Simulated scan of single mutants.
Amino acid sequence: MVKPAAEPEVESFLAMLAAQRGAAANTLSAYRRDLAGAAQIIGKLVQAGREDIAKLATAWVELAPSSLARKASALRQFYGFLLDEGLREDDPSSALPRPRARRTLPRLLGHEAVGALFLTAEADGAAGTPEGLRMLALLELLYGSGLRATELVSLPIAAVPRDAPFLTITGKGGVQRMVPVSARSVKALADWLAVRGRGGRFVFPSPKGGHLSRVRLFQLLKDLALRAGLNPETVSPHVLRHAFATHLLEGGADLRVLQTLLGHADIATTQIYTHVDSARLVALVNERHPLGKAANS
C-alpha cells in the first residue's frame, strides 16, 4: 500500500504538542507513526466518521493492549485538537476500540541481584581501567539516582556540579529536575571523569563522537549481568530504574518525593510502584493500628 501524504491537520497537531506541551522528539515521532498507520487503514483522518473509526477495531485486533491504548490515545487527542481548533464539529473517537488490560507491573530486581551486579562492577572498577570505572559510574547512576537510559547516556558535563551532590537532568518534554547523587556515586563519577580524558560535552562520550548510545548501554549491562551470574534478560536500564524506585519505597520514601526523583509528570505513573510495598504496609497496619494490636495481644 502506498503511504499517504501527511495531512496538514496532523502536522498542525504535532506542532501544537511540541509548542504547548513540550512533547519530546520521540513522542512526536510515535504520534506521527500511529496517525499515519490509522490513515492507511481508514483514509483521511480529518474526514473520518464513526463508521470509519470503528474499522480500526478489526485492523488492530492482534495488537498488544498497550499498543492499542497508545494508538487510540493518539487519535483521541488528535480529534480533540480538531474540535478545539474548529476544524470539526463532532468527535468520532468514541468509536475507537478500548483495550481491556491492566497496567503491567514493572519487572523487579531484588537486593541480592543488585548486590551481585555491584560486586562485579566494583571489582572491575578496582582494576582502574577506563572501561571498569565507566561501568561502575553508569551502574551507580542507574540504580543510585534512577535515571532513564536516555537521560544517562546524554548527560552533559555541564550537568555535573562541582560543589553540590546533585545532577541537573533534562527529562521527557525538556522538563528539568534536580536529582541527588549519593556519596558513593559522586566518587564513582569522579573516578571515571579522571580517566575519561578531555574534550567532548558528554559525561559518557562515544569513540565516534557524540555520546554513548542506548544500545551500547544495554549491551554493557547485559555483559555485566552475565559476569555477575545473572540472567541477562532480567537486567536493563529500565529494570534498574524500577529497582531504585522500589527499594526507596521499601525504605519508607514518600510517593511524592519519588515522583519528583523519577521525573513523572503524573503521580498516577508513580503509583504503580506501591504494589511492591504491600507486605510492609500489611505489617505496618498489624503493628501500629489499634485493632491490629488488639488482634496480636
Rank of each mutant, 00 (worst) to 15 (best):
R76C: 05
S66D: 07
V181W: 03
G251L: 06
L281P: 03
E140R: 06
E233N: 12
A194W: 08
K187N: 12
V2W: 13
D91G: 08
E11D: 13
P207F: 06
R288I: 13
H238S: 08
R21H: 13
V195S: 10
A158C: 07
F244E: 00
Q271R: 11
N286H: 15
P8R: 09
V114L: 12
P161S: 11
V160S: 05
A95V: 13
G292Q: 02
A57Q: 04
R177L: 03
R214Q: 09
D90E: 09
L248Q: 03
L75D: 00
L261K: 02
G146H: 01
A38H: 02
R102G: 15
H111E: 15
I53V: 15
P106T: 05
L248M: 13
I267K: 08
I272Y: 03
P237G: 04
S206Y: 10
K71R: 15
Q259K: 15
V2D: 13
Y79G: 02
M135G: 07
H264S: 04
Q20E: 15
R70N: 04
V153P: 01
A59T: 06
R50D: 08
P106F: 01
L240D: 00
L83N: 04
L75I: 07
L261C: 07
A164R: 15
V61L: 10
S12V: 09
G251E: 05
F166D: 03
L167S: 02
H275G: 11
R214D: 06
V153L: 05
P156Y: 14
L220P: 00
K222N: 06
T260R: 14
F166T: 09
A6S: 14
L224D: 00
G115M: 08
A158V: 11
V195E: 02
P207E: 03
G43E: 05
A19W: 07
L262P: 00
A194C: 09
P290H: 05
L284W: 09
Q47V: 12
R214M: 04
A265F: 08
